[in-house]
Amino acid sequence: MPATVHVRELSTDDLDAAWELGRIAFGSDPQRPAQTTATPAGLTRYGAFDDAGRLVGKAVDLHHDQWWSGRAVSAADVAGVAVAPEARGRGVGRALLTALLRGAHERGAAVSALYPTVAAPYRACGWEAAGVLRTVDLATAALPRHRPSADLVVRAGTVADLPAVTDLYERVTRHRNGMLTRRGELYDFFAADRGLPGDGLTLVERDGDLVGYVTWQRGRGYGADSVLTVDEALAVTPEAAREIVGVLGSWASVAPTLRLCPLDGDAVSTVLPLESARDHERDLWMHRPVDVARAVSARGWPAHARGVVDFGLTDALAEWNTGTWRLTVADGAAELTRVDGEADLRLDVRGFALLYAGAARARSVAQAGLLQCAGDADPTALDLLGVGGPAQLLDYF
């Protein structure tokens, strides 16, 4: 291909070529989903074109929000990155991601997450591995038996219950880090004509209030290889969690295997026999700041955390992040302000991503070469950046 590549937002006239490029890259079903012909609000599609005007690469900026300790942070989550076979290894992906980050910065995004098929190209662009979406298999018969609680009502959910399900999801996730809010124009678009998620929705209520739910896919057959796939199981009380697990355990005679994505430390996970879980699938996800100042000021911070630390930052793709910064944390809030001169601690943007997501401590980041310390500077001062705890995702995109 020519040495130059031209990146712009895709128009409706480009969607056929974009679909075909993605179909070839990901081995998708030849039947084209209806949503790929639409141009919904809440996402931006980018395309890279050669001098002849041929589409040779594409990427999508999903206008998500992520929960960070009780506050919604604007995100540019990346999906659908594909490069034509003949154009690979020639800087097309980097050009796409550079344009995507610039566009995301202009619209006010603060952070970005993605699921890579290969990590190296994204590391070269400033993303770093921060967590794993883990899908596990459990023997359904191993789930603890539970006598139904007299003060809880278990019933099948309907479409009318979905707003309450969304509210309960928010109660579980908003105090965590990295979880999608599942609100906004993009979610409204995909939910507009949607019925119930999966094959079934089971609700647990107390005095008419939703305290737990599980969405599930029945799968096929009832033999030894039958699997009940749980899309999501969340609860806000231990009693509701035990009720949900009891319902799932009742499938043992016709679905010997239960498949689900556990959420670390939540009410349902504390009831499951995770010691016997077998990994079915592991999806690595990566994180990076779009705008470091926004990423720090927009999120929630633990009220007990206090401190000040100066550090330098290098970001090759997002030059607005490069420079010397002062991090100040106090009273449940934080800010980054630019300061003059050089700091004794200097972060690569990937090191910032690890610390911000709570995926590593500063000394480990330094050992990885992503934090440079001048003289006898103590790298642990930058642990202040990750005091909110580890991030986690439950959504694949």
Rank of each mutant, 00 (worst) to 15 (best):
R176Y: 09
N177Q: 08
N177D: 01
G178H: 08
G178Y: 08
G178N: 08
G178E: 09
M179Y: 10
M179T: 02
T181V: 12
T181D: 05
R183F: 05
G184V: 10
E185Y: 09
L186H: 02
Y187F: 15
A192N: 10
A192P: 13
A192Q: 15
G195M: 14
G195A: 13
L196I: 11
L196R: 12
P197S: 08
L201C: 03
T202H: 01
L203E: 02
L203I: 00
V204H: 03
V204N: 07
E205W: 02
E205D: 08
G208P: 06
D209T: 09
D209Q: 12
L210K: 02
G212R: 01
T215H: 01
W216Q: 10
R218S: 13
G219Q: 07
G219N: 06
Y222S: 15
Y222M: 14
A224T: 14
V227R: 09
E232R: 07
A233W: 00
P238Q: 08
E243I: 05
V245P: 01
G249P: 00
S250I: 01
S250R: 06
A252L: 06
A252G: 04
A252R: 12
S253N: 14
A255Q: 13
A255S: 15
P256L: 10
T257Y: 07
L258K: 02
R259V: 09
L260Q: 04
L260V: 06
L260A: 09
L263N: 03
G265A: 11
E275T: 13
E275C: 11
S276T: 11
S276M: 09
S276R: 11
S276W: 11
R278Y: 04
R278H: 10
